[in-house]
Design a protein around this nucleic acid. Sequence first.
DNA 1: ATAGGGTTAG
Length: 701
Amino acid sequence: MGVNPASVLNRLLRNNTRKPTTQPTNANSTINRILTHLNAGRLRKAVSILFGFPEPFPYSLYARLFQLCSSNLAIVEARKVESHLVTFSPAPPIFLLNRAIEAYGKCGYLNDARELFEEMPQRDGGSWNAMITAYAQGGCPEKALLLFFQMNSSGVYANEITFASALGSCAAILALFLSRQIHGLIVKYGFYGNVILGSSLVDVYGKCWVMSDARRMFDEIQNPNAVSWNVIVRRYLEMGDEKEAVIMFFKIIGENTTPLNFTFSNALIACSSISALNEGIQIHGVAVRIGFEEDEVVSNSLIDMYVKCGKLESAHRIFDQLGSKNVISWTSIVSGYAMSGRTGEARKLFDEMPEKSVISWNAMLAGYTRFFQWEEALDFIFLMRKTSKDIDHVSLGLILNVCAGLSDVEMGKQVHGFIYRHGFYSNLLVGNALLDMYGKCGSLRSARVWFYQMSHWRDSVSWNALLTSYARHGLSEQAMTIFWEMQWETIPTCANIFALEQGKQIHGFMTRKGYEIDTVVRGALVDMYAKCRCLEYALRAFKQAASRDVILWNSMILGCCHSGRGREVLELFGLMEEERVKPDHVTFQGILLACICEGLDELGRQYFNSMSNDYCIIPRLEHYECMIELYSRYGHLDKLEDFIKRMPFEPTVPMLTRIFDACREHGHLRLGEWTAERLNESNPSIPFRFEIMDRVKLDKL
DNA sequence: ATAGGGTTAG
């Protein structure tokens, strides 16, 4: 690499005089050196000579540098580039600062991005988009949405990029209501035909379990692309509608679109889970026809499909023809032999594997346990512990099955200890396997103790495990008692149908028998008594709790709301904060309801604002409704008007109806007419006409 | 200038 003599001279001169800015500098030579570094992929080197030139560079160079910092995740360099930019350009253009925000965001330094965003003297739509996208892609969907709201209320118009990030954030937190509002805005702003937004909507609706809406949205996309198709297939698969997933896959082939490799694997997974071998074979044919058989993802998915459909020979044939086999191909084939009882052949293949993962180990072990080969399983576990550091919840579940199969409670206890030390105890699969192990080993006491410790996360499998182990040991009476205890779980039902008497009976029976009440049951009791308007009983059950989580607090708070005891709610909230329990959106709904009971509009407003400002909780539909009710009921119509117009989404029809009534009742012409107009827009067949009630009209005159 | 889906094996 030749050294530019001019630049060397320059550097010497600068070092000698110590007054660099007064010296003539050769901009072009510095830029050329930087560009040479960049073209050779030496970003760090390029950035290191930046400050040797103490004057602004052309904007295009900064732009290129930021872009490279983004793609290389180079945070240090990004900071240096920004520093140079703002040091030597008194008023850097907004678009360059936006690119700096993007770079910080891509590197995962959201605080840097936010700081720059806040400090910018001027912002354009791109600045908001860059910041929102940074949050959305940086794992902070709530923050992205909060910023999206602020953008809307500060009068900056959202564009398709903003909407894409907002929808992505909605999908991450399954915010269905918000998605619908944003959908409305997309239509309103004229971005209706955008494929990316269309696909994002399909995605959100599907993730929120409203497949009918997802499908309707998909059908509305004029030219769905490969991603759109992938989304719809995947959503059907995850919803458990495998048949529709496969049908959609074959529809792609009729279109002029090439499916993505992941779409192949999604369709093949669908075939496996419904044992649709013929369809799987057809998909195999498609893959061959369009030259996807070489694709790693597609071929592995094909192997697995054949394995799961019981066609080991077909699977093996693909496996043998494979140019490059990876862990996944190997594991699939091993699993195929192991799970069909051919553990000897599976083991031979397993031992040949050039590389193994936890999943490979688990696949082999699962074969031994499924066919009750306990001795082989035990040896295998020792080998596994010796050779591999990896272990996960599936391994632990299988190991516990082996302990159970060998009736080795001592080994089981050791595994229990391991589970405790490594933080696996809150995993339901592991928890139930532990329960099953104690049951099968005849340690019913241990089973019982563990069962109570699982209170927060036990499910019907846990109950069944406990019941069958008692029954298996001929302890039918105790089994019956457990069955009785299951009645606890019917307490919530009593609450929902206001069956106070039945609820009390169960509570009384269990207390007399001396059964322990855990947090879950306690919450149900509080809820039941509160819903049945027995607030004293509810409070008593609440106070007796050894510890209280947010759910228990919410039960009590909403219970008070139910009986119109707003003051108590606010007191409870104070106590909750003292106990350092973090409130959630349900808590705030209770607080706002309390403010409605008590007519505390100013306090309500403060709590509403502090939700997002202090607690990072995005207000939901119900919170907005509470605020509207609060202002409407007590006639604060100017505040109501201000609130409505600042909402980040259009008011719903029930909201508008409530406001309309309030305006009539309290005589607010401007807001009343505004509301009537909107109501008529949404349903022109029944025109609303705003007239202030006669009495009020007279007062005003 | 900035935007969407998906990571196949137990």
